[in-house]
Computed example of a mutant assay.
Amino acid sequence: MNLNFNQSLAKNYTSGPQIIRVLSEAWVKDNGYCPNCGTQPLADFANNKPVADFYCATCTEQYEL
């Protein structure tokens, strides 16, 4: 598991909340796993989904980042 953010993804952002959103979503997409069943990687919902950011395609658990 890589514990570092890919900081080059944030080079076009100036807002702190946008920077951490871009970095953390990319990190979870690349390194996250389902705590319920262990499936890796997690699938991501379309942007601006009101309920969650990621879900497990195996057990259908949903996760908000």
Rank of each mutant, 00 (worst) to 15 (best):
N12T: 13
Y13R: 10
T14H: 14
T14R: 11
S15E: 15
G16K: 12
P17C: 13
Q18P: 02
Q18N: 15
I19L: 14
I20S: 15
R21D: 00
L23Q: 10
L23N: 09
E25I: 00
E25C: 11
E25G: 10
E25Q: 14
E25Y: 03
V28I: 15
K29F: 14
K29A: 15
D30M: 07
G32R: 05
Y33S: 12
C34I: 04
C34L: 05
C34T: 03
P35M: 01
P35H: 08
N36R: 11
N36L: 09
N36H: 14
N36V: 08
C37R: 02
C37L: 07
G38A: 04
G38K: 07
T39L: 03
Q40A: 11
Q40M: 04
Q40V: 07
Q40P: 06
P41R: 03
P41F: 06
L42I: 02
L42D: 00
L42T: 02
L42F: 02
A43H: 12
D44M: 05
D44N: 07
D44E: 10
F45V: 00
A46G: 04
N47W: 04
N47R: 10
N48E: 07
N48I: 02
P50T: 04
P50F: 07
D53E: 07
F54A: 06
F54P: 02
C56S: 06
C56I: 01
A57R: 00
A57N: 04
A57Y: 09
A57H: 09
T58D: 06
T58R: 11
